[in-house]
Each structure stands twice: as structure tokens, then as C-alpha cells.
């Protein structure tokens, strides 16, 4: 079992909304939070455990940096392990990204160059994390603004190969494929087609914004029509999956985000009931 999330829409839970969610217990099928925000103890962890008692939860890491050259940060990995043990989440995921080089950290999700050596490097790190966590990890494709000359494999193919080698699950961010299509000309439908359906354990959708001719993955706008179309195509191909709505910047009141979530949840349910009829 790669993950045990419900096959419905879920919602990214951000710190400014935690109190509102604890007070109103909205009808949300599952939540996802950023793991690093709950390293340590006290009120943040206590609030997360309270939410975990009532909802399935996904832990989504933004800081492990699987693609970094050299060893992973042992303390970071231990903190993640401790959190996973405390929370017992339905899914644990990390990005296919790097964030550290030559002793210096870069606080962003930097794309991995898909050049010679990338598969062995990432497969080794993923296996190491799965050994420490004693459970499968889901790996997510990131958005990219730059490319690398001499790339030897596509992103979807890379994810499929990492699944084959390590047994990890795939977290497919459709907005990131779309952003990469706009910035780098990749074909998102081809990326989706490259992914083995059985390995896809979670889907992300979000919005992006344009800055000076670059599509930037801000999670600061409504999900675009193009990404919703990709979602339709993906669910049609893979069948029902947990679909997460992410919103990080331009974060308004919870009620506003909740309305957007309910729209997506309805959309996903309609799609999935159609898919079930088709596949039945």
C-alpha cells in the first residue's frame, strides 16, 4: 500500500487556517500539511494531532532535498521519522528537488538535472528514506524555470523508473507539468502517459501566476482551466485518486478556500463516478 488517502479531493492546510479548522471541523475528506512546520513540539504539533484524530492526513515534505549531492541531512531525516511516528499519516511525500550544495542551503525547491547518473542517485536516496521511515515514500515532480542540456530522460519516465527501482509511490503535480509546458515546452499529456497508473497514489492541483514571461508556480491563484483539463485526462486514465487542492500565497479566509475546495471536490466526484462507469 503506497498510501491510504481517501479517493476524494483533499485540501492543503496552512497555518493561518488551523484554528478555524479546529473550531469548525469542515467537511474535508483529508488534509495535507508541510512536514517541516511540525518538526518540534508544542502547540503546532498538538493542533496537528487534534486534526489527525478526526481526519486522514498527508505529510508533504519541502526540505529533504532528495536530489542534493552528498548525504541527506541526518537530523532532518530523523525529525521527519519522529513526526511520521507521532502522526501515523495516510501518506508521506517529498519533492524530486535539491536544496543544498557545498555546505550551503537554498530555501527553494530546485529541479533535478535529468542527466547521466540521476536515476541511481535518486533511487539510492529514496531507498534510504524508505528504510528510515519503514514505509513507502511518494515522490512529486516540481515546476522548473530552467532546463539542462544533455538531459537523458523525461520527468514522467524518471518517476516511472524510480518507482520500478524503489517501489516508491508517485505524487503527480499537474500544475507543475503545466507550468513546465509553458516554460520549457514539455508535453504534459505525454508525461502523464509515461506514469504507471498503479504507482500514482496522489495528485496535486494548484494555480500559477505569470512574472515577466515566466509561469511561476506560486500556488497563489485559482486552478487554471488547462490544469483542470489535465486532471480530467489523468483521472480518466488512472481511475479515482486522492486529489489535493494547494493554495499557499494570496491565502485568504478559510471560508473562501473552502468554497474552492467544494467546487473541486464536486468536480472530482463527478469525474470519478463517470470513470467508474466507464471502467465497470
Amino acid at each position: 500500500m503506497l498510501a491510504t488517502l481517501p479517493l476524494y479531493a483533499g485540501l492543503g492546510l496552512r497555518a493561518p487556517h488551523v484554528e478555524a479548522v479546529l473550531a469548525s471541523r469542515p467537511d474535508v475528506a483529508w488534509w495535507e500539511v508541510h512536514s517541516e512546520n511540525y518538526f518540534g513540539g508544542g502547540a503546532p504539533l498538538a493542533s496537528l494531532l487534534a486534526i489527525r484524530r478526526d481526519y486522514p492526513l498527508s505529510l508533504h515534505g519541502v526540505g529533504l532535498g532528495l536530489g542534493r549531492v552528498g548525504e541527506l541531512d541526518a537530523r532532518h531525516l530523523a525529525q521527519l521519522r519522529d513526526l511520521v511516528q507521532r502522526v501515523e499519516p495516510a501518506a508521506v511525500s517529498e519533492h524530486l528537488a535539491w536544496n543544498q550544495h557545498a555546505g550551503r542551503y537554498y530555501n527553494d525547491l530546485l529541479p533535478v538535472p535529468r542527466v547521466d547518473g540521476v536515476i541511481a542517485h535518486l533511487a539510492g536516496r529514496i531507498a534510504q528514506v524508505q528504510d528510515v521511515l519503514q514505509r513507502p515514500l511518494l515522490i512529486e515532480n516540481v515546476s522548473a524555470y530552467v532546463g539542462f542540456a544533455g538531459e537523458v530522460i523525461g520527468e514522467g519516465e524518471l518517476m516511472a523508473e524510480l518507482h520500478r527501482r524503489t517501489g516508491c509511490g508517485l505524487l503527480v503535480d499537474l500544475n507543475n507539468f503545466h507550468v513546465n509546458a509553458l516554460n520549457l515546452g514539455v508535453d504534459p499529456l505525454a508525461e502523464i502517459a509515461a506514469l504507471p497508473a498503479a504507482a500514482v497514489a496522489e495528485i496535486h492541483v494548484a494555480g500559477f501566476e505569470w512574472f515577466d514571461g515566466t509561469a511561476v508556480d506560486t500556488h497563489g491563484a485559482a486552478v487554471s482551466a488547462e490544469v483542470l483539463a489535465l486532471l480530467d485526462a489523468a483521472l480518466c486514465q488512472w481511475g479515482p485518486r486522492p486529489v489535493l487542492l494547494e493554495r499557499d500565497s494570496n491565502l485568504g479566509e478559510f471560508a473562501e478556500l473552502y468554497r474552492e475546495y467544494l467546487q473541486l471536490a464536486l468536480h472530482v466526484e463527478r469525474l470519478e463516478s463517470n470513470t467508474l462507469e466507464v471502467t465497470a
Binding site: 515546476s143 507543475n176 501566476e209 499557499d248
Partner: peptide, 21 residues
């Protein structure tokens, strides 16, 4: 509780300081 959310700011390679990027 609302205080502890700095890592939301870099999710998926973006900045959430309004003038992102």
C-alpha cells in the same frame, strides 16, 4: 498556532511574499 508556518512559503518553488519571484 498560526505562527508556525514558515515552510509553507517555499512549497513547490515559489515565494509567498506577495511579489513572488
Amino acid at each position: 498556532v498560526a505562527k508556525a508556518g514558515q515552510n509553507d512559503c517555499k512549497a513547490n518553488g515559489h515565494a509567498c511574499a506577495g511579489q513572488a519571484s
